[in-house]
């Protein structure tokens, strides 16, 4: 069992050790990529839109759950439920 384990480990090391990247490390490209100026506004916009969608979803869930308790809630609830 231990021999089998060692053989497997050896084969694994041989296979992974034979992998080499086609391109070497490029530090200039790395720095450019790390400082990508478009990254921050896009991440911010993505975060804001995700938060808005989550809020809308939570509001819709509240209306579905407590529909009859709010004015015109029953109508809104049936509209939301039919859309699911």
């Amino acid at each position: 069992m231990a021999d089998e384990h060692d053989e497997l480990r050896q084969a694994l090391s041989g296979a992974i050790g034979a992998w080499h990247p086609a391109h070497g490390p490029d530090f200039r490209h790395l720095v450019h990529r790390a400082h990508a100026p478009w990254r921050q506004p896009i991440a911010k916009a993505s975060g804001v839109s995700t938060a808005i969608l989550a809020l809308l979803f939570a509001l819709a869930m509240l209306v579905v759950m407590f529909g009859p308790a709010v004015p015109d809630g029953a109508e809104l609830r049936s509209h939301l439920v039919s859309g699911l």
Binding site: W19, P21, A22, H23, P25, L30, R33
Partner: peptide, 15 residues
């Protein structure tokens, strides 16, 4: 995947 691995490696170092 060899080419995806290069891209992800570069991304990891950028992080």
């Amino acid at each position: 995947d060899a080419s995806e691995a290069e891209d992800v490696t570069q991304d990891s170092f950028a992080k």
